[in-house]
Design a protein around this nucleic acid. Structure first.
Ligand code: NAD
Ligand code: NAD
Lengths: 217, 217
DNA sequence: CCACCTTTGTGAAAGTATTCACAAACCAAC
DNA sequence: GTTGGTTTGTGAATACTTTCACAAAGGTGG
């Protein structure tokens, strides 16, 4: 059980958990793989296979207990605790993230924010005081920051990510449209809005090309 | 040539293009698949296979012409034109996006912003006047909005997405942590920050579990 | 306790994506 | 022109993911 788990499975587990929490709020007791699949955009076989990578959690004939499967998924995903998050770059997107109340509720607590801009250092943003980047190491260690968010201009993102890794942060969420190269023991995920828009652009352009060639015939 | 192209290929094409533009700025003339692969986190075979899905663009023995491959990729990705974008929900993240100057530069022009909050309607945000949601249809049609961004609270995201689809928007970028179900002829991509953080949480938790079991032995 | 209905868990099959490996092409230098 | 070094384009091989399909398990009602 639980060798290498594909990324796509982990993403789906998050979606299942989200649905389970919703169902929990409506006091539902059991849910079938079929129903779980429905809203997560997966198939029922996929739900069962994803879960079977970690164990057997369902009751044949009944489905999955909403409460206990929620707990199991939270355990698997590491969401039984609150993670401490540090944010670097209190600009437009960084400020939005500091004000993103859902993060707390979901187990991600932003405990520190850093910037190099003297005008921002010392100011409170959504209740958190912005620290100078030079205090990164001290504060990350004192607060026990485990996840870093990079929200700086792309030119300095790689450098910032390296510092975060060096100082012991184990995972980074990167908003800058740049590939970070950090040590393998630091996990990185990117949120790349331009990339997503370009993906949409490709689909729109392809649809138009198809339309155009159909009209030509 | 060019049947169904995997999503992973399209994402990599964007990354290749990004690198090519950087190389272009340094006046480089040719680049090999090996070098292109390097920074995009791919292999050279993958670069060549991705490109070969669309045609033959390289010169054996030399590599790819930076300028002409850039143009080709822009053509493929539909980036030879500027797309008109409409944003719904001028809150924290919506405001950050309105101020994201890079989007213009990359061919995505936010031409309209909508909200339901009377306090926001009519105000200028980064040079754009916020319109009431009730004007969605009129403005989308007048301005020719082609891509919609959903930046509303999750509870209303599905409804907003449906409206966008109904008034003729062909593609949606969704920031709300909700599955949208829209007609198949509307393309959707999601930017789901909580999902990404949960992915990191899984990796951190797994690493810890491994550590713990090693120490136990 | 048995017949019947439902839904899981899982090998095996099908389908996708990535990597390998090499002939064909190009360039440069002599 | 021919030799040698380089790099593409691509079929074939491998690896990975998803889907299929069904036996086994649980529940219900008689
Ligand atoms: N604005 C958006 O909506 C948006 C969306 C997605 C991605 N992004 C990306 O996020 C990043 C930030 O964008 P933004 O729009 O918030 O820009 P911004 O200019 O508003 O903010 C950048 C912040 O980073 C700070 N900074 C600069 N160098 C730093 C360093 N070395 N260490 C710490 N802080 C530093 C600046 O002082 C500033 O406060 C960019 O890479 C951008 O491409 C922005
Ligand atoms: N804040 C962040 O950094 C962040 C990051 C990622 C995702 N998100 C997601 O983005 C969405 C917005 O988050 P936010 O933090 O900006 O919230 P917010 O409350 O600051 O903004 C929401 C905005 O949407 C408007 N709105 C509400 N109902 C509307 C409707 N029916 N039509 C049009 N506009 C409507 C509100 O008036 C408000 O201006 C949420 O779904 C959130 O989960 C936020």
């Amino acid at each position: 059980m639980s060798g290498r788990i594909p990324d796509s499975t982990v993403r789906r587990l998050s979606l299942y958990l989200r649905m389970l929490r919703e169902l929990g709020r409506t006091n539902r007791e059991f849910v079938s793989s079929h129903e779980l699949a429905g809203r997560a955009g997966a198939t029922s076989a996929q739900v069962r296979k994803d879960l079977s990578l970690f164990g057997s959690f369902g009751k044949r004939g009944r489905g999955y207990s909403v409460g206990s499967l929620s707990n199991t998924l939270e355990e698997i995903l590491g969401l039984v605790r609150t993670w401490k998050v540090g944010l670097v770059g209190v600009g437009k997107i960084g400020t939005a993230l500091l004000g993103y109340r859902d993060l707390d509720a979901r187990g991600f607590d932003i405990v520190a924010a850093f910037d190099v801009d003297a005008a921002k250092i010392g100011k409170q943003v959504f209740g958190l005081t912005v620290s100078p980047l030079s205090d990164l190491e001290r504060i990350v260690k004192e607060c026990g920051v485990e996840i870093g968010i990079v929200a700086t201009p792309p030119e300095v993102a790689a450098e910032v990510a390296k510092s975060l890794g060096d100082v012991g942060v184990g995972a980074i969420l990167n908003f800058a449209p740049t590939e970070l190269q950090v040590s393998d023991c630091v996990a990185v995920r990117a949120v790349d809005i331009v990339l997503e828009l370009e993906g949409l652009s490709y689909l729109l352009a392809t649809a138009r090309r198809l339309d155009a060639s159909k009209t030509d015939e």
